[in-house]
């Protein structure tokens, strides 16, 4: 159910819509960045572990 938006519904809806889109985008970007950094770090750490294990095994 839509609230009563009086004589200027377009301006009110546009304000809330722009805010929703921009804040939604900001949340998505910040979450993506965190996940991306986390996966990059995990990848780097795994590579370091492999290198350590490879150093122990001279054939590797």
């Amino acid at each position: 159910m839509l609230p009563d938006l009086g004589n200027h519904p377009g301006f009110i809806l546009a304000s809330y819509a722009v805010s929703l889109v921009l804040i939604g985008g900001l949340i998505a970007w910040i979450r993506y960045d965190f996940r991306h950094q986390k996966s990059l770090l995990a990848e780097l750490e795994a590579r370091r572990l492999r290198r350590r294990s490879a150093a122990k095994d001279p054939k590797a």
Binding site: L26, I27, I30, R31, D33, F34, Q37, K38, L40, L41, L44, E45, R48
Partner: peptide, 20 residues
């Protein structure tokens, strides 16, 4: 909330930089 998550990302970014 967003500030804390962004700070966590930045800490990870700096760890990645140091590891590299």
């Amino acid at each position: 909330t967003l500030h804390f998550i962004a700070m966590r990302s930045e800490i990870l970014r700096r760890r990645i930089r140091t590891l590299r």
